[in-house]
Design a protein around this nucleic acid. Structure first.
Lengths: 167, 167
DNA sequence: TTAAACTTTCAGTAATTATTGAAAGTTTAA
DNA sequence: TTAAACTTTCAATAATTACTGAAAGTTTAA
């Protein structure tokens, strides 16, 4: 496998993995492309490499910027915008974990709380609903707390965590 | 909010959350329904409650069974099959973590290794591709190891983990 | 100002994914 | 066996989601 094939394989794998995790394919591919690029890329270059339209590129770049994963760069004397992604995997993981907590975990915790705090009318069905949704709520909240503490540890948190858990 | 509303809200939230995580909506809803049900349900009852077709119910139940989250039950003297889900959230989490590792993380690790072990032709581009995919590979492998160890700890692993990490 | 160089928006369309429902398949009781 | 009671399959279709490309918008240099 040569450079071109390997790069393509990486971008495609990342794209597929992205869809599996609810992230759209183009978005994941753009991030992958920037992740292995030696310098920031212009929209033109991204379109060209991934064979996607201007509109698609623009919208997905915006989403990546919203997530805080990609930043715009300006080259001196150039009108064009250039884009680059966070290159450090640990930092990247921290950003993604933080965003997913905010966008998904926190709303879920809120809804679960609304459900398990309904008034107990004494029936077995209601008791089961309360019991089970409370259990989920507590798990989700614990997971969220864990994630949030994790993302406030800047250095080597993953390795450290493993050491602490299994020793 | 009464029982019926709360149950519906839970099922819908779970369904939406499922789609967000790459799990199909009906599958997540069936699991949610069984999760708060006081007894195993027949296919007929699931169809009725969720207003989905027989085919859809059958296919998604099979997937849930494949995942190891749902089991068939037989009632004495009855021909019909009844279905129930794992009720313990910790156990549920363990099963899901294990399956996702097997289905997603492990193939990704394998592909990343293929990419970062290409021969280094000395160019900056190749060096960057190797460096970045290796960093991702190592992260994914560490995460996978962590998950797998986690799922082999049966009791209260999540709470324990948090205690250990942050003390 | 103007106009060139760029980016964003969005209606229309394409691609993908989920769902239905009826036919085929299976199991069991008589 | 047969036929009733059930489950599974899968081609057709519906629903959802992604993508395109051209028009509108923005910025900057002259």
């Amino acid at each position: 496998m040569n450079y071109i094939e390997a790069k393509l394989k990486f971008i495609n794998t990342w794209g597929t993995l992205g869809s599996l995790w609810g992230i759209n394919k183009a978005m994941a591919q753009i991030q992958a492309l920037l992740f292995v690029s030696t310098s920031p890329l212009s929209m033109e270059e991204i379109m060209e490499e991934l064979k996607i339209s201007r509109g698609n590129t623009s919208m997905n770049l915006r989403q990546l910027i919203d997530w805080g994963i990609v930043t715009k760069e300006f080259k001196a004397g150039e009108r064009k915008e250039y884009f680059s992604t966070e290159k450090d995997v640990q930092e990247l993981t921290r950003i993604i974990a933080k965003e997913r907590s905010r966008r998904e975990l926190q709303p879920a915790v809120k809804t679960l709380k609304e459900v398990y705090t309904i008034t107990d009318d004494g029936t077995a069905e209601t008791k089961e609903l309360i019991k089970q949704t409370k259990a989920l709520h507590d798990l989700a909240e614990t997971a969220d707390t864990m994630l949030n503490r994790l993302v406030s540890h800047k250095q080597n948190w993953l390795t450290k965590s493993i050491f602490k858990i299994f020793n």
